[in-house]
Simulated assay, not measured.
Amino acid sequence: MRVDLFNFELPPERIALRPARPRDSARLFHVDGGKPFVHRQVRDLPQLLRAGDMLVFNDTRVIPAQLEGLRGEARIGATLHKRIDLRRWQAFVKNAKRLHEGDLIRFGANVTAIAEKRLPDGSWTLFFKGDEPVEVLLERAGRMPLPPYIAGKRPTDEADRKDYQTIFAEKDGAVAAPTAALHFTPDLLNALEGAGIGLETLTLHVGAGTFLPVKADDTQDHQMHAEWGCIDKKTASRLNQVKQNGGRLIAVGTTVLRLLESAVNEEGQIQPFSGDTSIFITPGYRFRAIDGLMTNFHLPKSTLFMLVSALMGLERMQAVYAEAIAERYRFYSYGDSSLLLP
């Protein structure tokens, strides 16, 4: 499909620079099949779902993956986006033309890394020196990796260390938040459980590649980035049991949806999974694992807008986004949410 079919005009003032407070007060655009659109709040979820349904969350934790340093006198910026091993990370690098293989980068706070190798996509393999875990080094020298549409408008601050982390954050490794889950609070979780709605977690470490633009003119020519995810055997069994009992699996975020659809077999059974996924979902895809999706509003011509268009239909999502803009919804990572039930 032509990528320009997924374009739309978004007024810059619709981009949220801070999350809603409290988090569950964010607006929720409810799209249920072909029924008329309904505008609610995230805290209304217990009334919009059914007893026996299950919400599935991503328990990845965002690490402070943005670094600023020096190679000699040259300023170097690095955004880590995928772990290679205990001491190596793949990173996007600013001012990379000043970098050569074997160069030492000093990031401050006694954190140094060697630029080991430039990769075919232009990113670099960085080897972090020392004995301390890389996560400890990042806590000392790194900043939260806010997406460019926020970081370009204001500096990262201490509030982001908490704001850009979900209530489920447990396993270190993401360099972007699974933002659909940013809206959840302890009160909302209690209300969902009281309504008989199940809660489950799995892990997908979101990479910075999620913000990369689609440069191809046709979707079939786009190379999707890979991210590491895991669903253990017990979790897969619980998810399958929900469907066997007639409940619906609602993915909270596109990261959860992509992992579940990577792990499902042709018969619709979710299998244990551990490894990379680079699944790219566009209109025409047949969903086998999920029955609905809660997700924020995405960028024009992005792989994520293509994904929601695959779930609900392109014309339907074009109408949803047009109405969301007219109704002054807040867009992107810190913005409002939608509940999409095909």
Rank of each mutant, 00 (worst) to 15 (best):
I15V: 13
A16Q: 05
R18I: 14
R21M: 15
R21D: 15
V31I: 15
D32C: 15
P36L: 04
H39M: 08
H39P: 06
D53T: 03
V62S: 05
I63R: 01
Q66A: 11
L67D: 00
R75T: 11
L80Y: 01
R88S: 09
V93K: 07
K94Y: 06
V111N: 04
A115K: 09
R118W: 09
R140D: 02
P147L: 02
P148N: 10
Y164I: 08
F168Q: 06
A169R: 07
A169M: 09
V175C: 05
A180R: 01
H183L: 00
N190F: 12
E193G: 09
E200Q: 07
G207R: 00
D218M: 09
W228Q: 12
S237T: 05
N240W: 04
V242A: 10
K243D: 10
Q244R: 15
N245R: 14
N245C: 09
G246Y: 05
G247H: 06
A251S: 07
E267L: 13
Q269A: 14
Q269M: 15
Q269S: 11
S278A: 14
I281D: 02
Y285W: 13
R288E: 10
L293N: 01
L307M: 02
V308S: 03
M312H: 13
V320Q: 05
R330M: 08
S333D: 03
S333F: 04
G335M: 06
S338K: 09
L341H: 15
